[in-house]
C-alpha cells in the first residue's frame, strides 16, 4: 500500500495541541476537584493552569469547528445513515470477537474515510456534544459572578459544576478508550505514527494486510 497523507500537518498539530492541553487540564482539574490531597498540584497553581489551558482548548475547538466548516474534513465525522446499524454491529463484533479470531479488520482507513463508524460516533459525541458542554460550563465557572443565582429552582453554579464534572469524566473515558483503540491499527503503533508523521500505511501495514489476505 502506498503512503497517503491521511493527516495533514495542521490536523496533526491541532491533535497534539489538544492532547497536551487535555493532560494539563486533567492533572489540574483533578488537583482542584480533590484539592487538599498532598501529591496533587497546589490549588492556586492548578487554578492558573486550568484557566489558561481551558481557554486554549476552547479556542482550539472553535478553530476545529471553523476548519471543518471550511474544509471537507468534517465529513469524516458523519456516519452514513444507510446501513448504520449493520456497520455498527460489524465493527463492534470485530472488536469484541473477530479480533481474537484473527479476522481481517472490517474497516481500512484511507483518505476517503478515516474513521470507522464507532470512531465516527464517538468523535461526533466528544467533539460536538461533550466539548461544547465542557466549554460552556467552563466559561460559566469563569464568569460565575455574572450568572443568575438559580435556574429552575436549582443553583446555577451547581448545575454548571455538575455539567463540567460529568462531561470531563466522560471525556477522560473517551481519552482512555481512544488511547487503547489506536493500538488496533495495522500494527500496534501504526496509528500513533500516522498522527506523528502524517503517513498512513507502512511496511508493517503491508505485512499485516498480507497476513489477513492469506
Amino acid at each position: 500500500m502506498s503512503t497517503s497523507p491521511l493527516y495533514p500537518l495542521w490536523l496533526r498539530a491541532w491533535h497534539w495541541y489538544n492532547a497536551a492541553l487535555f493532560l494539563a487540564l486533567m492533572v489540574s482539574g483533578v488537583s482542584m476537584h480533590y484539592a487538599g490531597t498532598d501529591w496533587l498540584l497546589g490549588f492556586n497553581q492548578a487554578v492558573a493552569i486550568h484557566n489558561v489551558s481551558g481557554t486554549l482548548l476552547a479556542l482550539g475547538w472553535i478553530a476545529f469547528v471553523l476548519a471543518n466548516l471550511k474544509s471537507d474534513n468534517g465529513r469524516h465525522y458523519l456516519p452514513r445513515p444507510r446501513g448504520l446499524v449493520r456497520d455498527l454491529w460489524v465493527q463492534a463484533r470485530y472488536y469484541a470477537y473477530g479480533i481474537f479470531r484473527d479476522e481481517p479488520h472490517p474497516f481500512h482507513a484511507g483518505p476517503a474515510a478515516k474513521f470507522n463508524v464507532l470512531q465516527q460516533l464517538s468523535y461526533l459525541g466528544a467533539m460536538y456534544l461533550l466539548m461544547p458542554l465542557l466549554i460552556l460550563s467552563g466559561l460559566g465557572f469563569l464568569l460565575s459572578p455574572l450568572l443568575p443565582e438559580t435556574l429552575l429552582g436549582i443553583s446555577t453554579l451547581w448545575l454548571v459544576a455538575m455539567t463540567h464534572v460529568l462531561t470531563s469524566y466522560l471525556l477522560v473515558l473517551f481519552l482512555l478508550v481512544h488511547v487503547y483503540i489506536i493500538t488496533i491499527g495495522d500494527s500496534l503503533t501504526a496509528n500513533l505514527r500516522a498522527m506523528l508523521t502524517g503517513e498512513h500505511g507502512t511496511s508493517d501495514d503491508t505485512q499485516e494486510t498480507d497476513r489477513h489476505a492469506s
Binding site: 482542584m32 484539592a35 438559580t150 451547581w158 473515558l173
Partner: peptide, 24 residues
C-alpha cells in the same frame, strides 16, 4: 443536588464521583 453554593474542592457529588470512577 440542591446544594445551593458550589465550592470547588469542597462540594462534590459523592454519587457522581463514585459512579464515574467505577465506570472508568
Amino acid at each position: 443536588v440542591r446544594n445551593d453554593a458550589y465550592i470547588v474542592g469542597m462540594s462534590r457529588s459523592p454519587l457522581l464521583d463514585a459512579l464515574s470512577l467505577a465506570i472508568l
